[in-house]
Design a binder for these strands. Structure first.
Lengths: 226, 226
DNA sequence: TCACAAAGTAACCGTTTAGTTACTGGCTTG
DNA sequence: CAAGCCAGTAACTAAACGGTTACTTTGTGA
């Protein structure tokens, strides 16, 4: 039994031990439960493969509630996508690069990105789905357009400090650096299944993951050093 | 009208100008036409979003022929995937790295991979779909398991020559180098839609593409040099 | 305390979908 | 040259699917 189903069952059983709130009718919890179930379903099957019935069942509720809270399948997908982006943007805020030495800062950024991707495979999968559809929902979402990353600005500052110290090449572009870090992490994880099959090596064992993390840091730094 | 539809229409009109073969009944051509249409459909919509009717229509034939030649939707998808892999493996053969200086060879490999990815977006898309499904069809295909790439071996030779000359670090791993090249190309192209939306820059204009190609070469070389 | 609104359920509906059947027409070969 | 097989067509079917209807239950505040 996965987490989502367990949650749903607990909810159905009445209140979950805490006396604060009678859990039999709990709109927020139902909504959240549907969203969590939809995240799993869309991440595992894509938008065309996801089944509305499967989401309702996973959430421990029924379709009527899903349509009640989210309108239709596409709007539910959009909500899932928005939540996923909010998740990474929120996590990004916890990373403070301005106190670090330039090289250390770039390394931290790379390791942060790697860790986030590793811990949130559903985010990578949703990105893949969204790109298959030419970012149709991302472009449509005003909420997500406002929610832009401040990573590039932070990284630009960091690189400028490194350039001033003569550590980094002056023609280094922050976007390129960020794309490099993201590319190395994304490809390794999102394509793990075909790569493992073709090269006959398990890329997901602890030692391989640790080695690839070091590789990302090393590659990124080597590419920007003067 | 796209290429596939045009082909189908030409076929339907009788023979296509060449007198060699009466085109009214042409199993090979019908099969190829279905395969081409299916490649487009699966690449655009993924496996869950692809429609058998749409494939038949695109191919200028009907469903009966599709089931006649390929069995069912999944086997058709497998045929598409196999053909896509055969395509890249065939192209790889045209690349001869053994005559080149080590640095030149690595640069050529990087540029070849970039060019292939750029010219075959359907291959990237199919890879994405296949990974979403944990390489279910790739693992199933005996034909594809036999069709392994010789790139890693060729690259290993190249790197060894570079190491012997004192150009490359001795701890450089060929698989890592190949993954690095593939990652940088794959991510930039497959995620172009979300990236363009979020960063507000068109990554697909000629100058950007050229710059990223140079970036891949530079990053790869910088990461392996002693 | 009861009326009302919102949460929740289950059975239902029309359409779309993958897959099939029953058939026609043309190419090859004994 | 006819028999038989294979390419090809169109209409059909059963199941799955997204979405809705009609209804019940529960919490709340006048």
């Amino acid at each position: 039994m996965d987490k989502v189903q367990a949650d749903a069952k607990a909810r159905r059983a009445g209140n979950g031990g805490r006396a604060e709130r009678a859990a039999q009718r709990d709109p927020e919890r139902t909504r959240a439960s549907i969203l969590a179930a939809a995240t799993v379903e869309f991440a595992e099957n894509g938008i065309g493969g996801a089944r509305v019935d499967a989401i309702a069942e996973r959430a421990g509720t029924n379709k009527r509630m899903l349509y009640h809270y989210f309108g239709d399948k596409e709007q539910l997908y959009l909500a899932v996508l928005e939540e996923a982006y909010i998740g990474i943007r929120t996590a990004e805020k916890s990373l403070n690069l301005s106190d670090l030495a330039p090289e250390q800062g770039v390394a931290e950024l790379a390791m942060f990105t790697w860790k986030y991707f590793l811990e949130h495979p559903e985010f990578l999968s949703l990105l893949g789905t969204e790109n298959l559809h030419r970012a149709r929902w991302l472009r449509q979402s005003t909420r997500l357009k406002e929610l832009h990353s401040h990573f590039i600005d932070k990284l630009a500052d960091l690189l400028d400090r490194g350039k001033a110290k003569g550590l980094f090449r002056v023609d280094v572009d922050p976007l390129n650096v960020y794309l490099t870090i993201a590319a190395l992490g994304y490809f390794y994880l999102s394509n793990q299944h075909t790569l493992t099959t073709i090269f006959g090596r398990d890329l997901m064992e602890e030692a391989s993951l640790e080695a690839w993390k070091r590789h990302i840091v090393q590659v990124t730094l080597a590419s920007i050093r003067r």
